[in-house]
């Protein structure tokens, strides 16, 4: 009996915490669907009297348009295109460079392996604010600052020390018998990587992909810092001015309209939310299974 009332008390506390944590999101949803008349009302109502899509319809007007082949197209589509291009390029770069490097560290006993691995881990110690200024100068000298190159090229040469470490751990669990058999059949190191190790590492690749989608989708800072040409910016960076102007009311179709801001925010949340749900299912099961099998 005592145990039961204890559980009820705990549940109440947990639910209360969840309500507090989720309230900002609920508020975002309510404002996103609220008619403009009610958003400017004092006091601001907790719920919209009716759910409208007006705020969503105003998004293209808020961001403006560009002309392409005589068509008027919303800038938001251009930002979205930039984001998608970045996603594809940086995800493939991260996955390839990270798995290839982890393969070298886990399956090939080459001279200087410990030293090279130490070098990779040492990059964790260098804070990004130390390198950002010189990187900007480098990119300017290379003529990259008007393109998206500074954002995705490094992913083809990196993949992140933490990721390399994780994938290496995973590959170490793959028994050598497979690759030994292939070697006897005459396969070279890179054939073994491509045809044997990479397919087995697929759950880790999914994990990297999901991580990279989240990172690229939400990263407003790297493009803001290194890309001068605004028309090359991805969505997240294009939203910076929206965040900075929040609550300065200046008309319906403006960045200051909270309703439009929340509608945009809600749309921006859909992609990370979907990858999170997919990742939960896919990643946890696969990675566990893979680890057991390995």
């Amino acid at each position: 009996m005592k145990r039961k009332s204890f559980n009820i008390l705990i549940t109440v506390i947990i639910v209360l915490i969840c309500v507090i944590l989720v309230y900002p999101v609920v508020n975002m949803i309510m404002l996103a669907f609220m008619p403009y008349k009610e958003i400017t009302q004092v006091p601001l109502p907790l719920f919209p009297s009716k759910f409208t899509l007006d705020n969503f319809k105003l998004i293209p007007d808020t961001f403006g348009y560009f002309t392409w082949n005589g068509y008027e197209i919303s800038l938001i589509l251009r930002y979205l295109k930039n984001t998608l291009v970045l996603l594809i390029l940086s995800a493939s770069g991260t996955i390839l460079s990270c798995t290839l490097c982890a393969y070298g560290f886990s399956k090939i006993k080459f001279a200087g392996r410990g030293f090279a691995f130490g070098l990779v881990l040492a990059t964790l110690m260098i804070p990004s604010c130390v390198t950002m200024i010189s990187l900007y100068v480098q990119y300017t000298n290379l003529g990259w600052v008007d393109t998206l190159l500074p954002v995705w090229v490094p992913t083809w040469f990196g993949g992140g020390a933490m990721h390399i470490f994780l994938v290496r751990q995973y590959m170490r669990g793959i028994p050598d018998t497979l690759s030994d058999a292939a070697r006897i059949d005459g396969a070279g190191y890179f054939r073994i990587y491509w045809n044997i190790i990479l397919p087995i590492t697929k759950p880790m690749c999914t994990y990297l992909l999901i991580g990279q989608i989240g990172t690229t989708w939400g990263d407003y800072w790297t493009p803001f810092l290194y890309v001068n040409d605004r028309s090359e910016w991805p969505l997240a960076t294009a939203l910076i001015s929206m965040a900075q102007q929040a609550t300065d009311y200046s008309g319906q179709a403006s960045l200051g309209n909270v309703g439009v801001q929340m509608a945009m925010g809600l749309l921006m949340c859909t992609v990370p939310l979907m990858t999170y749900i997919l990742g939960q299912k896919n990643f946890i099961e696969n990675v566990r299974l893979g680890a057991i099998k390995g």
Partner: peptide
């Protein structure tokens, strides 16, 4: 050689 080629993109990137 194979080992260093495999890790070379990342080492170059670093």
């Amino acid at each position: 050689i194979a080992g260093w080629v495999a890790v070379s993109p990342v080492i170059a990137g670093i």
